[in-house]
Design a binder for these strands. Structure first.
Lengths: 163, 163
DNA sequence: CCTAGATACTTGACATATCAACTAAATCTG
DNA sequence: CAGATTTAGTTGATATGTCAAGTATCTAGG
């Protein structure tokens, strides 16, 4: 019998690497957009202001700025979002959702909620749901103070044929 | 105040999409192998028999067979694993870890355990760890019966410039 | 005001993941 | 046992993620 720590980690790892991808695929199946596109559209559609700064959007989702930049340009290409230079600081970009993006988000969100209920919420008890919120809070706040994103302290040697 | 369901899902989504990638990067930083390579090496190093079938290995990790195939050939290229045709069923391949792979796993595992303790186990209470095991069990067993991998029921229309 | 950082983002190369064919071997069925 | 089906795995195209470097703008110190 393995220790509790190890079993819990494996348990978490398993659902993290199966449930999340599964639900991403479901989005594609029912709405034709990727999981990443969905997440961005949801974030944008929930704004109380018309636009967000690229950087803030990335921070809000916990993404690297580079990833967000690529993602937003792809989404701009297919007309889901719009990007414009900020007038007061021209290094910055204001991102907003287009009508098309909003329309797609509007139809995708309830379908995705149904999937989430099916695979997640309905399968767990109230206590388990509350426990997850606490767990997430504990981990996130620890991560935030210990490992802020977009910082590098990287000095490894990659494993290749010759090592 | 959002409903419990939704908050719990967002909580889970957040740690699933920040902690897991973070720990993957840590592996690369301290051991020079990717998170995927690490997972495969750990699985192989824990075998009680010398080899596994590609397909079983994929199932054990919940990966698609195609992904596993690509991954194993890359790992064979850099000498972490070895692949050989099964003698009784020549469609099958037996995969095993090489000495080099085992050596790397051996040094990577304790480092990674330390990281996991740091970001995960030490941050949670015993009760939270136990709760996660139950949660994972509930979700996994539901998924297994509802959504077996490598099956397609896919009839969507992709979102592109023209839709 | 001028220069040395910082900041916000872009870009391109590369690694990895996913999907849709495709090949080959095994098994089933009449 | 021949042909059809299933199973195991490969392959290549495309999508996405990551990393290192680069550009442009802003800001702060002198």
């Amino acid at each position: 019998m393995k220790e509790l720590d190890s079993r819990a980690w494996r348990a978490f790892h398993k659902i993290g690497t199966t449930l999340l991808p599964h639900l991403g695929r479901q989005i594609t199946i029912h709405s034709g957009i990727s999981g990443a596109e969905y997440v961005v559209l949801v974030a944008l559609s929930e704004l109380t202001v018309p636009t967000v700064n690229l950087n803030r959007l990335a921070q809000g989702l916990g993404w690297e700025i580079s990833r967000m930049s690529h993602q937003i340009s792809r989404m701009e290409d297919i007309g889901l979002v719009k990007k414009s230079k900020n007038s007061s600081d021209s290094r910055c970009f204001d991102v907003s959702i287009t009508a098309k993006g909003r329309r797609i988000a509007k139809s995708a969100i309830p379908l995705q909620s149904k999937e989430i209920n099916h695979c997640f919420s309905n399968v767990l008890t109230q206590n388990q749901l509350m426990a997850l919120i606490d767990i997430s809070e504990a981990i996130s706040s620890h991560m935030k103070e210990q490992h802020p994103l977009n910082k590098k302290e990287n000095t490894y040697e990659k494993v290749t044929k010759r090592s």
